[in-house]
Design a binder for these strands. Structure first.
Lengths: 214, 214, 214, 214
DNA sequence: AATGAATGAGAATTCATTCAT
DNA sequence: GATGAATGAATTCTCATTCAT
């Protein structure tokens, strides 16, 4: 949504002041992602976020009301651009379902697993129960949309005869599962047993497409 | 005297005192699981663990040196019984690879996902980066063993002609992924979109077995 | 602007903020001296230091990293001015060795024993073994310098024929000993047997000068 | 006083039980001296005292009511034997005052400075202000008696013409001071500037006797 | 008598948040 | 707006003392 607004909107162009504010906001969001990723919500210090953003402790509170709010805004800000891209994936030109599924999964690996957005994925899992509000936001804005895309692709595949009609409860989660696990693995177990994301991706797609094949 | 109390056990007989210590240790481990599950490591209060175990604050420190140690011991204590069971799964009577894989996955759903051990799974993912020691323990004691079992089953299936020889990097992780995601989902998103573990299990097995089929 | 406030000082002008910090630092050092003197290091409560300095508990930690550091800094801060004065005593105009020794001892009684620096003397003796770092600092910055002065005076006296050449191991310590004991006595036994420092000083000087006399 | 009772008193000889109690009491006193010397009163742990005495924590409380009491009893127990010896020094065969003073000082160096009783000396200085009760005990039982002996010797010396009649306030403290300082030095500064007690003793005696000489 | 498990008051230290400058 | 000094509630951990066994 934000992307659409940017270029030639009818809002007043941002003044110097507002621009600087925008930049500082961005810096704080980035710093927050870095710090929360490193140590989790509870152990993160506002002071560290401030330092990492190059501002003073007090300044953080000019932009965010509290640590909780900073955390939520950080997650949302990092999710927003994703959401529009997912939406675009829903309305795709008519290639085969198989190709669309591959492309969507590629998107997942490229835009999330291979960036530090995977940290957010982990944070959601780690802190979700303490931030039901946030879990719900994530579910309805990211997961639901992602599910919709995949469901549409599967239906297209069934209709075209590419996929069998599996009809299972939780099919979508099962399809994506491999990707989530890859993300977690990279963050937690990679030092002990490294994972090559590209090769892993191939296995994932191979297994799932074969599993779905009519 | 004590020997008479525990007639049918050839283990070292525990005195009354030692028995009570054992019980209290167990109570603390259980309390720790409950509290850490609820709020994560950093936000957990030793005081709450104590209260939940029905002892005083100071007592916790008679059993565990620090919050860190309590956390690690709690994880290990909850993993230990699992590890032996996994080992048994490795040496199974000669049924088909398909049946063995189903059985092993059933085991996973029954012994982990459906118990509060899934909380531990989540804690490992959430706190792993802050407890490399623990992540390594978990990897080498639980994950490695689980991987070995599945690899053996797959090989059996390839040998018997049941499975194709997929040879993919991260195949095992992809096979189990659905289960992990189910566990996380129950803990984080169930309130917003409930998951029926039994039905989900069927989908998971169906998709994977079909994906592996020769 | 700040420069105008401190016109007659060529030191780096302190801003209001910095001035206040300086003052608070001083207040904390003073409070620390008072509290540590009263109950010793281990029994001293940071809370009491804070209250005595008129700040909150947390503030103490803005100025000092730990109780240990506060203790050490307090000792050093109280010693610093002394050290320069001792140095000046070394380079004295040419009066007789006898007069110089008297003067130096007077200095000792006036600047240490009769102020609450004697508390520090006692703290060094009491806590020294637990703070080797500090004991060493005290030894090399205060004791060594003091010893040097006295040695120089004695040599002058020997050269001038005022003193005999005693050549004893630990002569300096023996010369000063009476003063140290006076300090301790005032702090520990004065309630039971009061000590008049002035009269005591006379005895001390009399005994030592006679003992050194050629 | 206790000494007089010991040998042929009319009390029943100690039973096995009482003997063992006596031994344990002794062990605890010794352990207390060791621990308090090491870390001072506040930082000393009853647990350490118990362990060092080879008994359990609870047992300490069968012998002493509290940490305070243990500390006081430990000091008293270590002082008691000294007190009788000092008393004997008072009633000495008729040798010259000079020789008596030397002998008394030798006694001081041998029985206190060269044993771990010097630790007690330091503890009195360190903790005295927090234990006025103890400081008073030490003053009236040890210091007063020691002072009496020295005063008697000095008077003898004046009468015999060996010493001049200095008449100074605090003369006794000044005479003994060198010894106290030696004790402290060994405990606090020896690592940085070692002190040879024997040579130091000679200097001390030389300086003082010369100072007193008629 | 002896033990050592349990208690809980107490102390050091941290850090989100506020607010004077 | 920005700063960073100050606050004080909160939390971990310690240890003298008690008491059931």
């Amino acid at each position: 949504m934000n992307d659409l607004v940017e270029p030639s909107s009818d809002e007043a162009p941002l003044s110097r002041r507002e621009q600087q504010k925008e930049e500082k906001n961005k810096a704080l969001i980035d710093a927050a992602l870095a710090v929360f990723s490193r140590v989790g919500f509870a152990a993160a210090k506002m002071d560290d976020v401030a330092r990492e953003a190059g501002v003073s402790k007090g300044t953080v509170y000019l932009y965010f009301d509290s640590k909780e709010q900073l955390f939520e805004e950080m997650v949302k800000a990092n999710m927003a651009p994703l959401m529009t891209e997912i939406a675009e994936n829903l309305a795709r030109p008519s290639i085969s379902a198989t190709e669309r599924l591959k492309a969507h999964m590629k998107f997942f690996y490229t835009k999330i697993l291979n960036t530090n957005r995977r940290q957010i994925m982990r944070l959601i899992m780690a802190e979700g129960p303490n931030f039901p509000h946030l879990a719900e936001f994530y579910h309805s804005n990211v997961l639901s949309r992602g599910q919709a895309v995949i469901k549409a692709i599967i239906q297209q595949g069934i209709d075209s005869g590419e996929f069998r009609d599996l009809q299972g409860h939780g099919l979508v989660q099962n399809i994506v599962a491999g990707a989530l696990v890859a993300g977690i693995w990279k963050l937690v177990f990679d030092p002990f047993q490294p994972l090559d994301l590209d090769a892993y991706f191939d296995t994932h797609v191979d297994l799932i497409l074969n599993g779905l094949k009519a």
